[in-house]
């Protein structure tokens, strides 16, 4: 067990090292010189050569790429992701400030998606090829096809402006969270509904489901106890992957609802070529993605005992 955990951590470290290198490399390769951009912004006129050179020296741009990468990496490991060019604030504290909002949004969106999608997918599968199934399928198609910024504005229009039940923008309370979570969760819900349906249809054909019926088990339990747990294994994989996309989607949704968060931080930083922040956000997102997928692996073990338990020569067929 401990050895398995060590192996996990090892692979996690390898992935993060690769991600950090790619992030740092790509940002450095981006055309446009931050020295020029930032100095011009500050002085409202083109900077002189000397000023540019001084700015570069201050931020270490004149060092070779590899040296910069390793010094950045060394700092990053110690929790120092540099200082914002603009706001002169440590990137780490900016991240700590913005991350909770985004995380809250992503989790709420995932929860909304699961609560809607799992029952809908199951019901669609059980009532395979009836009007219930077709309605569910069409709803899922609409959900997948709808751009989330548009859905966001639509919700604001109806719920906030017409009905006045939720605030238009901002963050902090539960009522601030409702609309963004629904906006962000809808696309995910649509994908998961279709997946749950397909997976359930397959599992419902399995011999052990027939065997459960032959035991006299109630149909509702046959579906939710015997079939669903088996059907969730592939679903969990997709939820894990989707979580990454939810973080991406948060960028748009945060802008629409003007929620402070990683998304708004990232968009502002990109326009300003504030590289340390861009690198920091990308790194944190990647880290969240990797951790989520490790959690997904743990969820497999909980769902399907054939994974990681027993193993060895125990399985003789």
């Amino acid at each position: 067990m401990i050895r398995a955990l060590l192996a996990r951590l090892g692979s996690l470290a390898a992935v993060m090292a690769t991600v950090s290198f790619v992030t740092f490399g790509f940002v450095s390769l981006t055309p446009g010189d931050p020295a020029h951009t930032i100095l011009r912004e500050q002085r409202q006129s083109p900077p002189s050569e000397r000023e540019v050179a001084a700015f570069r020296a201050e931020h270490g741009f004149d060092e070779p790429f590899v040296v910069r990468y390793f010094s950045w990496l060394g700092d990053a490991v110690r929790g120092d992701l540099g200082t914002s060019y603009y706001q002169s604030e440590p990137v780490t504290s900016l991240l700590v400030e913005h991350l909770p909002n985004t995380l809250e949004l992503a989790l709420a969106a995932t929860a909304v998606a699961l609560v809607v999608a799992v029952p809908l997918g199951v019901v669609s599968a059980v009532h395979h090829e009836t009007w219930i199934d077709r309605t569910g399928q069409i709803a899922a198609l609409v959900g997948v096809s709808m751009p989330n910024f548009w859905l966001g504005y639509l919700l604001i229009l109806v719920c906030s402006l017409r009905l006045g039940v939720t605030p238009v923008s901002g963050a902090g309370t539960l009522s601030h969270l409702v609309l963004p979570a629904i906006t962000l969760g809808t696309g995910m819900a649509a994908v998961i509904t279709r997946l749950v349906r397909t997976s359930m249809l397959e599992v419902l054909e399995a011999e052990y489901v027939t065997a459960a019926r032959s035991k006299g088990v109630r149909e509702r339990l046959v579906v939710y106890k015997h079939a669903l747990r088996n059907a969730l294994v592939p679903v969990v994989t997709i939820v894990g992957l989707q979580f990454g996309f939810v973080l991406n989607g948060a960028v748009v949704v945060e802008v629409v609802f003007q929620r402070p968060g990683l998304g708004t931080l990232l968009v502002d930083a990109i326009f300003a070529r504030d590289y340390p922040i861009v690198q920091g956000v990308v790194l944190v997102t990647a880290f969240a993605f990797v951790v989520t997928n490790q959690l997904v692996d743990l969820a497999y073990v909980a769902l399907d005992p054939r994974i990681e338990r027993g193993g060895g020569g125990d399985d003789r067929r």
């Binding site: 052990y208 027939t210 065997a211 459960a212 032959s214 035991k215 006299g216 747990r229 399907d304 054939r306």
Partner: peptide
Amino acid sequence: RLRGRELATVFQDPSTSLNPV
């Protein structure tokens, strides 16, 4: 009631007729 108390079935392939989870 009948399946639960009177008529029991054993299927052909025990590798698929037991719920793996």
